[in-house]
Amino acid sequence: MQEITLADFERAIKAAAETALRNEKYFSELDSAAGDADFGVSLASGFRVVQNDWDQLDRSSIGAFLLKISMIISRNVGGCSGPIWGTAFMRAGMLSRDKTSITLEDLEKMLTAAIEGIQQRGGAVEGDKTLLDALIPVRNKIKEYVGKPDADLREVLREAAAVATEAIERTKNWVAKRGRQSFTGERSVGTPDPGIVAIATMLNDICKAVGVEPASQASNG
């Protein structure tokens, strides 16, 4: 089966950064329903630095690259989102420190480590209406393909984007239980969680960046 290379990670992060910048206002609007309306601005401030520092990032391995992204995100994304997103990149980076290409099985492990990191740092669990409710189904979908020698990475990516997109509608009417949104509990019902929308939009944009037609559209951005 094909391997996932450092160049693939670069393309993905670059696309995700563009998602964050293009949706700065939209993600903040989603956050204003029950949070403090700064999620889009916070996320964009971090990914703007990723873009600005792009040429100087350490590319000696996938892990080194992700650890650098982790530091930039934790440092520059405001509020609690910084260390939460930063921890996800850090845990994934720690498992790929000496690798310039990885298998789908490695990716699944990295994603699992990222999910555990987010849970530990933020104290959220599945069902709290956070980005975990997009990331966990994505990880589970990837797991289905692990061990299938004929799995097509492009199909895996499309399917991963599809489950993340489904999570937006599926969780929309849940009550947010963690983060700033939890203070306003009931007000979150009916509005999608901005973290879930961000993950889904990023995955759909990554699809487009590598020429994979996404199964559906997540964002208006």
Partner: peptide, 17 residues
């Protein structure tokens, strides 16, 4: 405080690694 805990916890994890 949440912010202090999260940032220090992450830095500690990096340093321990």
């Amino acid at each position: 405080y949440q912010g202090d805990r999260m940032n220090w916890d992450m830095a500690i994890e990096m340093a321990q690694a």
